[in-house]
Design a protein around this nucleic acid. Structure first.
Length: 257
DNA sequence: GGGATTTGACCAGC
DNA sequence: GCTGGTCAAATCCC
């Protein structure tokens, strides 16, 4: 190890995403955030059911990019991955519109930032969105209050936090759905784009504004959105459509890569 | 052959 | 001494 790196890494900004995967993505890996990562280690963590994987930027040597991330699968929710990022990408290989995580931290000081998307209530886009989406409020689990979800597209859910890890439980999991769109928009270094592209957002917003059928769900989310001054939405997507195999071999080599 | 992944070993912090 | 994080050789894959 390069002398001084330890200290430097301690000084690096650090934040955690939670990534929920769909069945399709289980085979692809838990997360594609628009950057190129290279796995450099895996460790069994005390008290954790699943090993933690360590990744660093592929361009660490070529472009002196010291961004790293750790991927830890949740004990409680096998399809939920906690991704801890360290450092910022200095390489030029990620999303070109890449703000710094510091900015993200600032904007997410309440845990979430939703000031960048334009609420739209287009029924057309809603219908379009619904075409590949099934909504199910029965899947809500009181224990985690994290509605499972599914999309026809291949991607993952992500949420952001600031310098700490989210608990696997809580309404914040609702935001995981955002990652179900194009992952580059969910890059940890792209806070302004945290909530996916405009077109995707528009479609999504339509659902958000019309799927308020479950009172406590609405209550739950409104409490959260009020706290975060966020227009974000209550959602209740079901994994039923995903056909997630409960016996899926999550520990299959390469699953975390 | 080159790049990525795996995995045991090593190191630092507590 | 234990644990988390990283290194680096071996191996795999394209």
């Amino acid at each position: 190890m390069i002398p001084g790196t330890v200290f430097c890494r301690k000084m690096m900004p650090r934040w955690t995403d939670q990534v929920r995967v769909s069945s399709e993505n289980l085979l692809e890996g838990p997360h594609d955030d628009g950057y190129s990562w290279r796995k450099y280690g895996q460790k069994d963590i005390l008290g954790a059911k699943y090993p933690r994987s360590y990744y660093r930027c592929t361009y660490r040597n070529t472009q002196n990019c010291w961004a790293t991330k750790q991927v830890q699968r949740s004990d409680e929710d096998p399809i939920l991955f906690e991704v801890t990022y360290r450092g910022t990408h200095t390489c030029a290989n990620g999303n070109p519109a890449v703000p710094s995580p510091e900015k993200q931290h600032k904007s997410n000081s309440n845990g979430l930032n939703n000031t960048n998307y334009q609420p739209l209530q287009s029924q057309d886009t809603l219908s379009e969105f619904r075409a590949g989406l099934r909504v199910n409020t029965e899947g809500l689990d009181n224990k985690e209050m994290a509605p499972p979800f599914s999309f026809a597209s291949t991607s993952f859910g992500c949420i952001k936090s600031e310098n700490h890890s989210f608990s696997p439980s809580g309404v914040l999991d609702y935001y995981n759905i955002f990652g179900s769109f194009s992952s580059p928009f969910m890059s940890p270094d792209t806070p302004e784009l945290n909530y996916f592209s405009v077109s995707q957002m528009n479609n999504f917003q339509g659902v958000l504004n019309t799927q308020h059928s479950k009172s406590d769900l609405t209550e739950l989310v409104s409490a959260n959105t009020s706290a975060t001054n966020s227009p974000i939405m209550d959602l209740d997507f079901s994994l039923d459509q995903v056909e997630l195999d409960p016996n899926f071999p999550f520990d299959t080599p390469g699953f975390f890569s």
